[in-house]
């Protein structure tokens, strides 16, 4: 199930993001990191992995992990979930599938439209937030999925070299 994505008209200084829903909240990732969007595939569970690791799937011969960010972020899934999809992200040779409740749209966001995430007392684990984009009645958190999962790209490089 590949989705047709409506792109907003963009000017040159815009960055494009793919916005999706986790529960009733909106998140977005840089569109350049998105490889494709697919329907939820059959997966093989991974023993000894944290519970947000749903399993591994066969993406045309490539074995990739599927994670459920909702579990990781403790967000309750939407009740009616016909639109559930998997966003395949690819950053520096790490490929990962992320389950989302719904893929919403592609956002073209200018830098001046991004505001910083607020500092919240006693919480220092939202490094993954790249910023916040406010639409007319909506709020979208721009995120780095790999950071929230604690996947350090540097480690990956070291592993490759070993």
């Amino acid at each position: 199930m590949n989705k047709e994505l409506n792109t907003d008209t963009n000017t040159s200084s815009e960055e494009r993001y793919l916005e999706f829903s986790l529960g009733n909240e909106n998140y977005a990732v840089p569109l350049l990191d998105v490889k494709e969007v697919i329907a939820v595939p059959d997966t093989t569970p991974i023993p000894h992995a944290p519970s947000h690791f749903v399993g591994i799937m066969n993406l045309r011969g490539q074995v990739i992990s599927i994670v459920d960010l909702r579990k990781k972020m403790k967000i309750s899934p939407k009740e009616q979930s016909e639109e559930v999809a998997v966003v395949i992200l690819e950053v520096q040779e790490i490929t990962l599938g992320v389950i989302v409740d719904q893929v919403n749209r592609v956002l073209g966001i200018r830098e001046d439209q991004i505001s910083e995430a607020p500092q919240i007392e006693g919480k220092n684990n939202h490094d993954y937030m790249l910023g916040i984009y406010r639409g007319e009645n909506t709020m979208t958190v721009l995120m780095n999925v790999f950071k929230i999962l604690g996947i350090e790209e540097l480690n990956f490089v070291e592993k490759q070299a070993a």
Partner: peptide
């Protein structure tokens, strides 16, 4: 043999 992603780090 297909490699597993780095995110799965159980050495077994």
């Amino acid at each position: 043999v297909k490699p597993l992603g780095h995110e799965i780090n159980y050495e077994g």
